[in-house]
Design a protein around this nucleic acid. Structure first.
Lengths: 253, 253
DNA sequence: ACAAACCGAGAGCACCGCTCTCGTCACGAG
DNA sequence: CTCGTGACGAGAGCGGTGCTCTCGGTTTGT
């Protein structure tokens, strides 16, 4: 997902352009097509939010839009393609939230920014449970994530990587002891550093991936019911956990 | 999921008894029924493993078993009930692996036992991707986990909680500084300690939940493709991350 | 002005989950 | 030992799904 992160965003955006043409369309037909495409997506997103991805029915969407089912296939070649469009939108939505949260707290410390991003991601997840499940839960049936998703999917990780870079540059994040790791892992981290987080040492990158796993893992545990009857005050618990994760990330201890 | 953990296992097991009667059945009909129930589950598990949960078709299962679809409804009142049976089996399978791994390394240190359990869970996940997605990915459509699943679902967490208790008792896990937490959270942790991990201080319980999130989060990242093109040597990376998580758990630093 | 591209409607195919009915057969009580 | 009851498998059927194809009508670029 983070692959070739530097150029991923551009790829993602140009890929998006195919579904949402550049502002003004030339012909009336094109404009109508763009509008209908967007309306179909909107209706589908509503149905997804209400009944979940498995219950997303192309026919039901068509009915609500006021078309016959076969007409929808002029816009999305298959149900999976419609789902893919929703996935991309979801990645973009949560990515935008994370970026906004980071932007809003930019002048504060790394820990405050980290916490702000975490809360933003969780808030979006709570408000869009089914969309969250779509992108961070199990992938749908035989569905393999197409190229067009990797750009949007990289937005949140990119925010965190920027945070790492800033924290290291500002001296807020202390590298700490570098754990022993295989040659391949070292090379993987080097590649990651090269594309998205220059000057961030292996130890910090490794801890960054840890807290990334902790963030998504924590939200997953909560949202998929694994903390049911264990934790009551989810809000407080999440904040506690993410604060603790931040200490781990920053102090390297 | 961890609710009333002390009695959860018993509940889970008696619940299982309903699907798998106590060894010898009285009548021939009962025996045939038990056998057919098991065969249906076996076929369904095969189809689940091959094509994923969404593609699990009651009709296809019936075909393979050699029955007509309506006959299967004599054994499982709905597709969701069949899925529930598979979920319980999956929880039990991964729970059994985790318990076996812990048992096999019982005489070693907490870190070795922790790593052993982590590797066991991940190995099971890799070998049973669709079943893993079923229990630790997004829950299926409108499906809400029934009571009968909480027992089996608690097995892996119980292994880890025992590990915490042992580590604290043996002095291998140092409590460290207790983070500030809300009254509710403190009470949640107290409840958890009361039911499954006596004498384990809040700080350690909190870190335990962190590494639990890190374990599942890490496996999720890997299995759901979020590390694609980022990490190549998944084995080494996972071990590195879990070793690091263990340091965090044990040293509390 | 016209061919080509595009589009919506409709019918249809194979599949799905699930329900209902009906004949059969094993079981247990009398 | 008989007989009623209940479990069982088969089959037909209902409404739903994804997807394909064909057929007219409209829009577009030339």
């Amino acid at each position: 997902m983070l692959s070739i992160v530097a150029t991923a965003l551009d790829i993602g955006q140009t890929a998006l352009m195919t579904t949402a043409p550049p502002s003004v369309s030339r012909t009336a037909r094109d404009r109508a097509r763009a509008e209908l495409t967007e309306e179909i997506k909107a209706v589908a997103r509503r149905q997804l939010a209400e009944h979940g991805s498995a219950a997303l029915s192309l026919r039901a969407v068509a009915r609500e839009v006021g078309m016959v089912s076969s007409a929808v296939y002029r816009y999305f070649p298959s149900r999976d393609d419609l789902l893919t469009a929703l996935i991309i939108d979801a990645y973009d939505a949560v990515g935008e939230r994370a970026e906004a949260a980071e932007r809003a707290s930019r002048n504060r410390g790394v820990d405050a920014r980290w916490l702000s991003v975490c809360e933003a991601v969780r808030a979006w997840a709570l408000a869009h449970a089914h969309e969250y499940a779509l992108i961070y839960g199990s992938p749908v049936p035989g569905y393999a994530a197409p190229e067009a998703t990797i750009g949007p999917a990289s937005r949140v990780p990119l925010v965190l990587l920027r945070l790492l870079a800033d924290g290291v540059a500002g001296g807020e994040i202390v590298p700490g002891e570098t754990p022993a790791m295989s040659r391949t892992t070292r090379s993987d981290l080097a590649q990651l550093r090269r594309t998205a987080a220059p000057a961030v040492p292996d130890a910090v990158l490794s801890r960054g991936l840890s807290v990334w796993a902790q963030l998504l893992g924590g939200i997953n545990l909560e949202m998929f019911g694994h903390l049911h009857n264990v934790i009551r005050d989810y809000d407080a618990f999440f904040t506690l956990q993410m604060r603790r994760a931040c200490e781990f990330l920053v102090q390297g201890v």
